[in-house]
Simulated assay, not measured.
Amino acid sequence: MEKQYNLFNHEIQVHFEPRLVRVFSDAALWAFLENDTGTRFEILVKTIKADYLTHYGAALKISNDSLIVEILVHVYCDYIGLRFNRVVKIKYIQNLVNKLLERAEVVDCGERSVDSNRWVWDLLARYKTAFIKILPKNLNRRKLKS
Score class of each variant (00 low, 15 high):
residue 11 E to L: 12
residue 79 Y to Q: 12
residue 81 G to I: 09
residue 97 V to E: 12
residue 30 W to K: 00
residue 13 Q to C: 07
residue 112 R to T: 00
residue 65 D to H: 08
residue 12 I to L: 09
residue 48 I to G: 01
residue 44 L to D: 04
residue 92 Y to T: 10
residue 44 L to P: 03
residue 21 V to H: 03
residue 27 A to H: 04
residue 126 R to W: 09
residue 33 L to K: 06
residue 40 R to H: 14
residue 97 V to H: 15
residue 10 H to G: 06
residue 83 R to H: 13
residue 104 A to P: 02
residue 18 P to T: 14
residue 120 V to S: 01
residue 25 S to K: 10
residue 110 G to K: 00
residue 33 L to Y: 07
residue 69 V to P: 03
residue 61 K to W: 06
residue 98 N to E: 08
residue 28 A to H: 03
residue 30 W to T: 02
residue 93 I to S: 09
residue 56 Y to I: 08
residue 33 L to G: 04
residue 19 R to E: 06
residue 110 G to L: 04
residue 60 L to D: 00
residue 73 V to D: 03
residue 88 V to C: 14
residue 49 K to E: 05
residue 57 G to D: 12
residue 103 R to G: 03
residue 32 F to R: 01
residue 141 R to W: 07
residue 18 P to I: 13
residue 63 S to E: 04
residue 102 E to S: 10
residue 59 A to W: 06
residue 113 S to W: 09
residue 125 A to T: 02
residue 103 R to L: 02
residue 127 Y to M: 11
residue 28 A to L: 02
residue 76 Y to A: 10
residue 80 I to C: 12
residue 27 A to Q: 06
residue 99 K to W: 02
residue 117 N to W: 05
residue 36 D to L: 15
residue 21 V to F: 05
residue 3 K to I: 04
residue 11 E to C: 08
residue 124 L to Q: 11
residue 117 N to H: 07
residue 24 F to G: 00
residue 26 D to Q: 01
residue 140 N to G: 07
residue 111 E to I: 08
residue 120 V to A: 03
residue 78 D to L: 15
residue 70 E to C: 14
residue 54 T to D: 08
residue 50 A to E: 13
residue 114 V to M: 07
residue 99 K to H: 06
residue 120 V to E: 02
residue 61 K to Q: 14
residue 44 L to Q: 05
residue 56 Y to C: 10
residue 139 L to F: 00
residue 85 N to P: 12
residue 47 T to D: 14
residue 37 T to H: 07
residue 101 L to T: 07
residue 23 V to K: 00
residue 129 T to N: 13
residue 114 V to D: 07
residue 56 Y to E: 08
residue 112 R to Q: 05
